[in-house]
């Protein structure tokens, strides 16, 4: 914030009549240093983001196998995908199911544990770090292999499920249940949003709760009327980030599906199918079209979230305006 105030006066441009020459110089001088400082990023943005985005948009209208020249096919990749490819719809269905189940569970657990830790006087830092550890490990191949083994036929989670009378032929091999192994692996990594929630909870002034308690508000009432609105910006932030990331889940899906989306395409996540089309089957044009649909879907979803945010996200500093 202080930066904005300090740069705002910009004495060089406005006070022409009595401009101090010493202050004008840095402004001029900063043009070429700025372009030097920015050049790695600018090259990266142009060569590895903007141009590739345009190229992949072009490729999405072609038939391209990486070896012969791309052949223009118009909208055919898109129409094939939407009307003639049941595996595409299967991958959309799996991914949407995964996002819809995993994100609320993960964020709910994160909020619950954050509130639990908030209530602790001692040991908060220890628990916070310990709960966070799975978030660092969860994206690794090793941990995905562990989950595959735990939920396999004969794995120890399977044995526990059997003991309490739940379906226990190994979720990994069951087309109805395999996707939930990926869900549980995602939920296991609730530590990162939990840390963010906890930071948000610690920002809420305790005087609000004290005043509410004096007015006779119970625990639940305090939660609904103080915690929820005060925390809503953090919830919103976590929700957007988590949804964007969840649509792109790959490593756990790859490992738990045995690398091919099985059993019976039940864990054929969108990114897995995109990889299979583009890199295994060499239909780069088709994969590019899938990538652009993903971008459009995620973009539209983010936009909708930002639109709805106005009605449920509460910013305390805007109250006085």
């Amino acid at each position: 914030m202080s930066t904005a105030q300090r740069t705002a006066p910009a004495g060089a441009d406005r006070t022409k009549h009595r401009k101090p020459p010493a202050r004008r110089r840095p402004h001029r001088d900063q043009r070429w240093p700025a372009s030097v400082f920015l050049s790695p990023w600018l090259i990266g943005v142009v060569a590895l983001t903007l141009v590739p985005m345009a190229v992949s948009l072009y490729l999405s209208f072609t038939d391209y196998d990486l070896f012969s020249a791309p052949r223009w096919v118009g909208l055919r990749n898109y129409t094939d995908m939407l009307t003639e490819d049941p595996r595409f719809w299967r991958s959309v269905g799996t991914t949407v199911l995964y996002v819809v189940v995993a994100v609320p569970l993960k964020l709910g657990l994160a909020l619950g544990v954050a509130m639990l830790l908030r209530s602790l006087v001692r040991g908060r830092a220890f628990y916070r770090s310990a709960f966070y550890a799975p978030s660092l490990l969860g994206a690794s191949m090793s941990i995905a292999l562990v989950w595959r083994a735990l939920f396999n036929d004969g794995g120890s989670v399977t044995a526990v499920l059997d003991a309490v009378g739940l379906p226990a032929d190994g979720w990994i091999g069951d087309p109805d249940l395999a996707v939930y192994v990926v869900v549980l692996l995602t939920v296991w990594q609730f530590g990162a949003p939990m840390v963010i929630f906890l930071a948000g909870l610690q920002q809420i002034p305790s005087t609000l709760y004290e005043a509410a308690a004096i007015d006779g508000a119970g625990r639940w009432r305090q939660f609904v009327s103080i915690t929820v609105p005060m925390l809503s910006p953090v919830v919103f932030f976590n929700l957007v980030l988590e949804i964007i990331n969840s649509f792109q889940v790959f490593t756990p899906a790859f490992v738990i599906s045995g690398g091919n989306g099985g059993p019976a395409d039940s864990t054929l996540f969108y990114t897995l199918y995109l990889y299979e089309r583009g890199f295994t089957a060499s239909h780069m044009g088709y994969a590019a079209a899938m990538a652009w649909l993903l971008l459009l879907a995620v973009g539209a979803l983010t936009l909708i979230l930002f639109r709805t945010a106005r009605s449920w996200v509460f910013y305390a500093d805007e109250e006085g305006r």
Binding site: V45, V51, P52, M53, V55, L59, M284, A291, G299, T302
Partner: peptide, 25 residues
Amino acid sequence: LFGFMVATLMLPHHVVLIPQYIIFN
């Protein structure tokens, strides 16, 4: 430029994946 930089935070990696692969190839 700063706004653009922040916007790229949300870009799914897959959109640039195939062209990047072609470039490096």
